[in-house]
């Protein structure tokens, strides 16, 4: 059983939990090491509160259940409000929950995450550039890229959500 015990559903009525498809880190340890290095390098100089919002939003768009589990819990553990996490998937309609700087970062997150629809519009880029000085802007783009990478491993390998404890990855 995962950590969904606060629900009102009767015990034993949940859908069965599935095992992951592929333990990628075990089969590609050099790749995992590079991902950890990449993650560490990308977050340097970024505000951690903002970065958690970016990670949650990208993970929502990419439907990465493991990453949503992990980053929502990390955000809560770091003092983020439940409301801001809950509202994030509808941030365009709940802008007053976020600072203008956060909104610019969230908008850039969406544009850089959904490349298949086109490109990263000038208006989105310019808004981000108005709120983020160099080198923070370059770090933000890198950070959005890295959570997108984790999302790809999480979704493809169907990593199981629900077992993450904040801080377990140090």
């Amino acid at each position: 059983m995962t950590t969904n015990e606060s629900t009102t559903a009767a015990p034993g009525s949940f859908a069965p939990e599935e095992a992951p498809r592929l333990e990628w880190a075990k089969h590609a340890p050099e790749v995992y090491k590079a991902m950890i290095r990449l993650d560490t390098a990308a977050k340097r100089g970024l505000d951690p509160t903002l970065y958690e919002l970016v990670k949650i939003r990208a993970s929502q768009i990419n439907h990465c259940a493991l990453c949503i589990d992990m980053h929502s819990k990390d955000a809560l553990a770091a003092g983020e409000s439940v409301e801001r996490i809950v509202q994030l998937s509808a941030w365009e309609e709940s802008r007053h929950f976020y600072t203008e700087k956060e909104l610019a970062a969230i908008e850039l997150t969406e544009a850089v995450t959904v490349l298949t629809d086109g490109f990263v519009p000038d208006a989105v880029y310019q808004k981000a550039a108005a709120h983020f000085e160099e080198p923070e802007l370059a770090q933000l783009i890198a950070a959005i890229t890295v959570i997108n990478a984790w999302n790809r491993f999480g979704v493809t390998c169907r990593m199981t959500p629900g077992h993450y404890t904040p801080g377990q990855h140090g």
Binding site: M35, R44, P135
Partner: peptide, 15 residues
């Protein structure tokens, strides 16, 4: 921006 952190570039290159 053309900036990219050296650590990001080298880690992604390693990946």
């Amino acid at each position: 921006t053309t900036r990219l952190d050296d650590g990001v570039r080298s880690a992604l290159g390693a990946l």
